[in-house]
Amino acid sequence: MSAAGLKTLLDHYGITGQEREDLESLIGNGPPRQWWRDLDYAEAITPAFAEYLALEADAAALMEYYPSAFPGLLQTEAYAQEMIAAGLDSPNEERVEAGAEVRVLRQRRLTQEPLLTIESYFGEVALLVAGNQSVLAGQIQHAIKAAPYPNVSLRMVPLSAGRPGLLSSGITLMRFPDDIENGFVFFEAVGGMLPRRTGRDVRRAERAIAQSNGARCLRRTQSSPVSASWKS
């Protein structure tokens, strides 16, 4: 049974707390579903975020779009701290540090088995938004380094795409090994990511991301290790 299937079953029977966590920890041969529990700042991880991390650990593929920031799985720790600190929920310093470090640890799925295949889009405005220019430069350099990975597709949606090519909020679609046609959708909202499971929501997410068909691939240039070129 997949993480998605187990979640549906546990929700149906109203199983919560430690019993739920014990059952969830038995799922899959990939990364431990509760891999963050032994970290020093595990208590700073909210239940909603813990659910997201558990599903991500079980996912085989992920599609995501963020209109004004680089995708989370491709962020540096410094950039992640800046983005989290700017959140609407005014996180304290401990939550900022915990969130940033967890975001970096999640990136192990990009280089370690079982590899996570990701198709990531971000808005051109992400190249313009940063409180610290050196942090932004480091983030761009990191994205250029990750873009050639065989399991990574990174594209920028230009401002010239207009409204049809831009989403108003972040969206993530996860797919799982035993049910690759369906999945879980997370829509960005105040207070976190809202999960959706129905086929209608999956199709809606697919259509929304497909609107970014004017996006340009990120590729490394040979002239400079921190420069980037974009192709349609």
Rank of each mutant, 00 (worst) to 15 (best):
S120C: 04
S212C: 13
P164H: 04
A143I: 01
L6T: 13
L136P: 02
T16L: 04
E21H: 08
G72A: 15
K145D: 15
A78Y: 01
E51Q: 07
E19F: 01
F122I: 06
S153F: 01
Q222F: 02
A78W: 00
E124H: 02
Q34V: 11
I45F: 12
L55G: 10
S25N: 02
A61E: 11
I180H: 01
V104M: 09
Q222E: 08
S169Y: 06
G28S: 13
A147W: 00
L166R: 10
N182Q: 09
S134C: 05
L218F: 04
Q75T: 06
P31I: 11
A78I: 06
G5L: 07
G162Q: 14
G192W: 02
S212H: 05
G5V: 01
N132M: 11
Y149H: 11
Y41L: 15
E51K: 04
V190H: 03
G123W: 01
D38Y: 05
E24Q: 14
Q81P: 06
V202L: 00
P164A: 03
S2L: 03
D178N: 10
I84N: 04
S2T: 14
M1A: 12
A189S: 08
P47R: 02
V190N: 06
V157M: 09
L127I: 06
V129W: 05
A137L: 11
L116M: 08
L53I: 14
G162K: 07
R203V: 12
R220Q: 05
H12N: 08
G72H: 05
V104F: 08
A215P: 03
E43K: 14
P164Y: 05
M174V: 06
N132I: 07
G17K: 10
L173D: 09
G17V: 05
I171V: 14
D58R: 11
E24C: 08
G123V: 02
L136Y: 00
E82H: 00
G28M: 14
R197I: 04
E21G: 03
Q133N: 13
A146W: 00
V129R: 11
A98S: 09
P225D: 14
V226N: 08
V96C: 13
E21I: 12
E43F: 00
V152I: 07
G165A: 04
L105F: 10
Y41C: 15
A189V: 12
D179L: 03
M63P: 00
I180F: 00
E188F: 06
P150M: 10
M156T: 10
L159I: 09
E64R: 02
L105V: 08
L23K: 08
R37G: 04
D201C: 08
Q133T: 11
D201Q: 07
R106C: 13
A228W: 08
D11I: 04
R204K: 13
M83L: 11
F176Y: 10
A137E: 15
R197T: 12
E43W: 00
D38H: 10
Y41D: 02
R200G: 15
